[in-house]
Amino acid sequence: MNAIKPSLASRLSTKSPWLYRINAGSCNGCDVELATTAIIPRYDVERLGCQYCGSPKHADIVLITGPLTARVKDKVLRLFDEIPEPKVTVAVGVCPISGGVFRESYAIAGPLDKYIPIDVNIPGCPPRPQAIIEGIAKAIAVWQSRI
């Protein structure tokens, strides 16, 4: 990064990371909170320049919910590999972080950081929308330090 100044387009694009959601066997509680954070005007995560996208190939920040069940593990890892670098991984809820109430269950392959490098954790069962916004703000800071 010595003398080369980034172009206007790349400077603008760093202000708007796109979010992608992976459900790794979640109970849907955290997914509802993620939807709430994006859709309900009271919280509105799009103020931070974020937007949910439908394809992993467009994603910058990936939000993973759920304890990574044994059945869904390979699919999650395959999906995660499709997301281009640099990516920032956020674990939403206690399940991906530690396993939560499903810890040490025979059906659980997690915790998630055994397989995927995690950058930001947002504990909670589920975390409230403000906590998710706080975590996404931290993830954006990590992401901007990487590009």
């Binding site: 950081d113 930001v120 954790n121 504990p123």
Partner: peptide, 13 residues
Amino acid sequence: WHLSHLQAEKYAM
């Protein structure tokens, strides 16, 4: 509820 943290602090929580 301000519990979100970076991965480095995971086991310090």
